[in-house]
Design a protein around this nucleic acid. Structure first.
Lengths: 151, 151
DNA sequence: TATTGTTATACTCTATAACTATA
DNA sequence: TATAGTTATAGAGTATAACAATA
C-alpha cells in the first residue's frame, strides 16, 4: 500500500526482466520441443526426486495437469516414474541420463543467450545485482532432497 | 562462452526471480480470467495502439495466434479493433476504458503481491537494483506510439 | 475417511496451412 | 507478388470432476 517510487521502478524492472528471461527460456525450450514447464521440471529434477504432488505444488499446477506433462516427458525418455519406498500410493519422478544431458545443454544455451545482457555489467556489478536479487527471492519450497531418507 | 562465476550466479538469480514474478502475474491474471499473454497485451496497450502484426512480433507469437487471443479479450470488452488510416489491410488494437480500469487494478495487485519481496530491500537498495537491471533489459521493440502520426 | 495419482472432459494457447483483401 | 489478418485444424497445457488404490 502506498508504494514509493523506488518500488514502482523496481517492480517495472523485475517484470520486464522476467518477460525477457522467459522469452529466452521459451525459445530455447521450443527449439528442443520442450514447454517452459517441462524445462522447469527438468531443472528441478537435477537435484531432487519429488513425488507428483510435491512437483505439482512447486509448479503451482493441479496434480491432474502433471500426469500428462510427465507422460510426455517420460515418452521422450527424459524422466521416469519410480515408486516411493514408504507410501505405495506415491509416485516419484526421476530424471534419466538423457534428461540430465539435455538439461545441461539447455543450461549452457541459456547462459549463452543471456550473455549479451549479463555482459553489459562488469563482474562486480553482476555480483552486486545477484546479491540484491537474493533477498527478494522466495526460498524454494521444500522438496524432499534426493528421495526421502536417502543420503 | 567460458562464463565466470558471477555470470552463473546472476543468471541463476534472474531465472529464479523470473519464475517468481511470472508466478505472481499468472496467479493474479487467473483470478481475473486472464492469461499471462492477455495480461501482457493489456500492459502494452496502455500506451500504444499497435497493429496485429506488431503485437505478434513483440509477443513472439504467430499472427494467427493473436486473432483468437484478441477475439476473447474483445468479447470481454477489454479492447477493440480499429482500422488503420493509411493501410486498409491493417487492424490496430485499442484498449477500452474497461480494459484500462482493469489493467490499473491488476497493476496495483501486482505491486501488493510483490511488496513482501521488494520490502526486504530498503529504498536505496531498490534503486540500486533497478539501476543494475536497466542495462540487462532489452530495449522494448519499437511500436508505433499512439497510432501512426498522431500526437 | 483422507490422500495420491490417473482418467475423462472441456477450454485456452499456440503453430501451420490455406484463404481473402489490400498494397 | 507480397503483406495483413482470419479461419480451420491439431496438439500441448491447464483445471474440474470422478475414480481406484492406499493410508
Amino acid at each position: 500500500m502506498a508504494p514509493d517510487d523506488s518500488t514502482d521502478t523496481l517492480v517495472d524492472g523485475l517484470v520486464r526482466s522476467a518477460f525477457q528471461v522467459m522469452g529466452v527460456l521459451t525459445r530455447i525450450g521450443a527449439e528442443h520441443d520442450l514447454s517452459l514447464t517441462q524445462l522447469r521440471v527438468l531443472g528441478i529434477l537435477r537435484d531432487r526426486q519429488p513425488r507428483m504432488s510435491e512437483l505439482a505444488a512447486v509448479l503451482g499446477l493441479d496434480k491432474s495437469s502433471l500426469s500428462g506433462l510427465i507422460d510426455r516427458a517420460d515418452r521422450r525418455g527424459l524422466l521416469t516414474r519410480g515408486t516411493h519406498q514408504d507410501d505405495k500410493r506415491a509416485v516419484v519422478v526421476l530424471i534419466t541420463d538423457a534428461g540430465r544431458d539435455l538439461t545441461q545443454r539447455l543450461y549452457e544455451e541459456v547462459l549463452d543467450a543471456l550473455a549479451p545482457a549479463t555482459g553489459r555489467l562488469d563482474p562486480e556489478q553482476r555480483q552486486t545485482l545477484a546479491q540484491l536479487l537474493e533477498p527478494i527471492l522466495t526460498p524454494p519450497l521444500h522438496l524432499t532432497p534426493r528421495s526421502a531418507g536417502r543420503r
